[in-house]
C-alpha cells in the first residue's frame, strides 16, 4: 500500500530545493556547485540551506567562470561523482558552450560508452519576469540540437521535483531548464509519487477539438487559452512535452490524432526551433489525421526585448486562440 506525502504548498524553487536535498541525502556522490549557490542559496534561493545542511564539500561556490564550472563537473563525473551544477541565468551558460557541446554531449560516444557523464546542468530560462538583457533567453534549441544531451523542462512543481530526481539518477547528462517565471508559484507536491521517467510527455488537459503542444513557461499560458476556448465552446487539450530530448512522439501524436488539429506553443524564436521540430514530427506522423496544417505560436525571430516590450514577444492567450481559430474549422 502506498502512502502519499504531500508537502504543504511550496514554490517551484522549494520543490527543486527539496529534490536536491533528497538526492544529496540518498547519494553522497551528489554535489552541487556554481555561482552564489553556497551561503546565499542561489539568486533564486533554489539551493537555500544546502551548504548549511550538507557542508561545504557538498554544496559550494566556485570562482566566477561558467566554462570552469562545467569543465570541472565533467572531471568530477569522470571520477565517480554526480555533479548538479547551476548556471545563474540562461545567457550566462554561453561561456560554457564549448564544454557542453564538445565534451558533455560527446564524451560517452567518443569513448564507446566507457565514460558516461551523469551530471545535471540546471538553467533558469525564458522570460516573463521583466528581466534586462541576457536574463530571459530561451536557449533550449541549442541544447536540443546537440546530440548527446537530454533536455528536460518542468512546468509544474511536482514535475520540477520528480524530473530533477530522475535527471540526477540518469546515467546521461541532462540539461534541466527551469522556467524562472514559475519559481515562486505555489503548489502541493507529493514527494513519494513515482519519479516520472525522462522522455514522457503528459496530457495536462483532455480536449476533443484541438491540441496545444507546449512545454515549460508556456504550459500555464496554454492552459489559460484552453480554458478561454472552452468558454467559447471549443474543447482544446494541452500536452506538456516535459522532456524535449528524448521526445515522446507517442503521447503527442496520440493526442493530435484524436483531434486532428494542433498548435505548438513556445516562447523561443520560432525559426529553427524546438517548436519547429515538434510541428515537423507531428506533420510527418499524423498527416492523414490532420484537418489543418500544424500551427506554431512562438516568439518572433528577434533578440529578447527589453522589459517594457517583452509582452509583445511572449505567446499569450490571444495569439494562441487566433492560431486555433485558423485551423480550418469551416471545412471540417
Amino acid at each position: 500500500m502506498s502512502t502519499t506525502t504531500l508537502t504543504p504548498k511550496i514554490t517551484m524553487a522549494q520543490a527543486i530545493n527539496t529534490a536536491l536535498r533528497d538526492a544529496m541525502t540518498a547519494d553522497d556522490r551528489v554535489v552541487v556547485f556554481g555561482e552564489d549557490v553556497g551561503p546565499l542559496g542561489g539568486v533564486f534561493r533554489v539551493t537555500d540551506g544546502l551548504t548549511a545542511s550538507f557542508g561545504e564539500d557538498r554544496c559550494f561556490d566556485t570562482p566566477l567562470a561558467e566554462s570552469g564550472i562545467v569543465g570541472m563537473a565533467i572531471g568530477m563525473a569522470m571520477n565517480g561523482m554526480r555533479p548538479v551544477i547551476e548556471m545563474q541565468f540562461d545567457a550566462f551558460a554561453f561561456p560554457a558552450f564549448e564544454q557542453i557541446v564538445s565534451h558533455v554531449a560527446k564524451m560517452a560516444n567518443r569513448t564507446r560508452g566507457k565514460v558516461r557523464l551523469p551530471m545535471v546542468i540546471r538553467v533558469p530560462y525564458a522570460g516573463g519576469v521583466g528581466g534586462v538583457e541576457h536574463h530571459c533567453d530561451s536557449s533550449e534549441a541549442y541544447y536540443a540540437h546537440t546530440p548527446g544531451l537530454l533536455v528536460v523542462t518542468p512546468a509544474t512543481n511536482a514535475d520540477a521535483y520528480g524530473l530533477l530526481r530522475a535527471a540526477i539518477d540518469s546515467p546521461d547528462p541532462v540539461i534541466f531548464l527551469e522556467p524562472k517565471k514559475q519559481y515562486f508559484s505555489k503548489e502541493e507536491v507529493d514527494v513519494t509519487a513515482p519519479v516520472p521517467p525522462i522522455g514522457r510527455a503528459v496530457v495536462r488537459r483532455e480536449g476533443r477539438d484541438a491540441t496545444l503542444i507546449t512545454y515549460g513557461p508556456s504550459v500555464p499560458v496554454a492552459l489559460a487559452a484552453a480554458e478561454q476556448a472552452a468558454a467559447e465552446g471549443r474543447d482544446v487539450g494541452v500536452v506538456d512535452v516535459r522532456s524535449i530530448v528524448p521526445f515522446d512522439d507517442e503521447t503527442v501524436c496520440a493526442a493530435v490524432r484524436a483531434t486532428g488539429r494542433a498548435v505548438v506553443v513556445a516562447e523561443a524564436p520560432g525559426f529553427a526551433s524546438v517548436a519547429s521540430e515538434i510541428a515537423a514530427r507531428v506533420t510527418e506522423r499524423c498527416f492523414h489525421h490532420l484537418e489543418a496544417p500544424v500551427r506554431r505560436v512562438t516568439g518572433f525571430d528577434i533578440p529578447f526585448p527589453a522589459p517594457k516590450l517583452e509582452r509583445h514577444q511572449l505567446p499569450g492567450v490571444d495569439r494562441i486562440l487566433d492560431a486555433v481559430d485558423d485551423l480550418q474549422w469551416e471545412e471540417s
Partner: peptide, 28 residues
C-alpha cells in the same frame, strides 16, 4: 519604447520573415 522597433535593427535590411512578423504585430 516602440514595438515596431523590435524588428528594425536586427539586420541592416529586415529579412522577409522579420517584415512579415513586424506586420503581424502591427495588425495585432
Amino acid at each position: 519604447a516602440d514595438p515596431s522597433e523590435l524588428f528594425r535593427h536586427v539586420f541592416a535590411e529586415p529579412t522577409p520573415q522579420l517584415r512579415e512578423q513586424s506586420e503581424l504585430l502591427a495588425a495585432e
